[in-house]
Amino acid sequence: MKQIVSILLVAAIGILIFSALYFSDETLKFNEYGNVNLDDRVSEKYIDKSVNGNTEEIIFGETQNAESGSANMVTSVVVNYRSFDTLGEVTVLFVSALGVGLLLNGKRKRKNLKDAPNFILKQGARIIFGIMVVFGVYMFIHGHITPGGGFPGGAIIAASILLLYLSDDEFRVKLSAAKAVESTAGSLYVIVGLLGIVLAGYFLQNFLPTGTVGEVISSGVIPIVYMLIGLKVGSELSSVIDGFLTEEVEG
């Protein structure tokens, strides 16, 4: 009975959404998939990096001192144009990791794994762990020129920690160290924002030279911010993993 009611309700919502989006006869229309003119959208200026009045074309490897020096346009939106959202999203992860910590608190020990890991698994996992951490670091250092950035980089680092958890039933991260990294990185992000007020005039404004588009050392504060985000996300997700793979000890 409940299923039938749910299906009917969902079908009604679906018909409503589809008819309003794709079969409406209004003059103002929802732009269908792929059928988009970027000139009508604010993002056109993100691509041309022309929010502050630049009129020249941006050329990879040539343009210098653009308002946002990142070759990856998504990164320039994430860390320059809409950096405040990113600060917010870092906060979301921060507060939910904190919530997990508050819920799964107390003195804890590792849960027993179903199959006790053998020596080869342990050592093999450690080798892969090193490679994964290096890849994660690569990911957030190159966030402004390749796909990637702080969030995927941090997630990869956390995944390498998860690998150690699964391959070794004794292993635990030092929660106090994870907390320290998390908190330092978060405070530094806010401080970068405040430095923007002091040195450039507005919160989170870029105060470093942006260099040449496409080089590793370029785009001002972006690599710094992404490094902080990477460390923060990595340590936060690691402490969340620890919460789920441990159990409370009595007393």
Partner: peptide, 20 residues
């Protein structure tokens, strides 16, 4: 993403904002 293959901002790119 600007790369050595697509090196000019004048080319047609997809909208980066929704990705962010």
């Amino acid at each position: 993403i600007l790369t050595s293959n697509n090196e000019s901002s004048a080319m047609l790119y997809v909208d980066p904002l929704p990705h962010a």
